[in-house]
């Protein structure tokens, strides 16, 4: 029972809501972890701020942890409750912004904020051109960039932003597109 319950943490990598029969997930992409590092670092700094104030307080100020009032500790606990929620707000947005490449479709889930969501999809047989763009020093060294997918005709271009290893992902998408056009199955 417990093992079956814990299976949800490693079983569902290749499944998603609305998956068609015979549709296999080839790639599940998220933005590069570096893109979420800035807000998380800021929250980390805020989290150690009370400790830093205590450490760097001038010796002239008599500050003993044992003499602090319960109100101080209570306000501190509220501060950490707030930080916890804020931390997971950023992590939720990070984890919900995904691009799923299957052997049939490419689906982009864009979560802008709570209750603000956009889902776009295109069939791989309509893909004509895929290109990877890396802009600037940081993106080059860290290894992330944007992927542009051009569909047939005058339809709009799909852009997947800040994806890790964009060249490898571009090659993989092109493999899926080629396999789809050849009628082959890709795993």
């Amino acid at each position: 029972m417990i093992r079956r319950l814990l299976n949800i943490f490693n079983y569902s990598e290749g499944h998603f809501q609305g998956q068609e029969v015979g549709e296999n997930v080839v790639l599940l992409l998220r933005r590069h972890k570096f893109t979420v590092l800035f807000p998380l670092s800021f929250l980390g700094l805020l989290a150690v701020l009370p400790l830093a104030i205590w450490v760097f307080l001038p010796p002239s100020i008599d500050f003993d942890l044992n003499t602090l009032s319960p109100l101080f500790w209570f306000i501190l606990s509220l501060f950490y409750l707030f930080l916890w929620v804020l931390l997971f707000y950023f992590l939720t947005l990070y984890s919900l912004n995904t691009v799923i490449v299957t052997n049939h479709r490419i689906i982009e889930n864009e979560q802008r904020a709570f209750f603000s969501r956009k889902v776009s999809e295109l069939h791989v047989y309509r893909v004509q051109d895929v290109s990877a763009h890396t802009h600037g020093l940081i993106e080059t060294f860290v290894g992330y960039g944007d992927i542009y997918v051009q569909t047939a005709g005058s339809e709009r271009e799909f852009t997947f932003k800040k994806i890790g290893n964009p060249e490898e992902v571009k090659d993989r998408i092109m493999q899926v597109v080629s396999a789809s056009q050849d009628g082959a199955t890709i795993k």
């Binding site: 943490f9 998603f16 995904t98």
Partner: peptide
């Protein structure tokens, strides 16, 4: 809305 293992963790 989570897809994959990460949102569950």
């Amino acid at each position: 809305f989570g897809i994959g293992v990460l949102p569950k963790k």
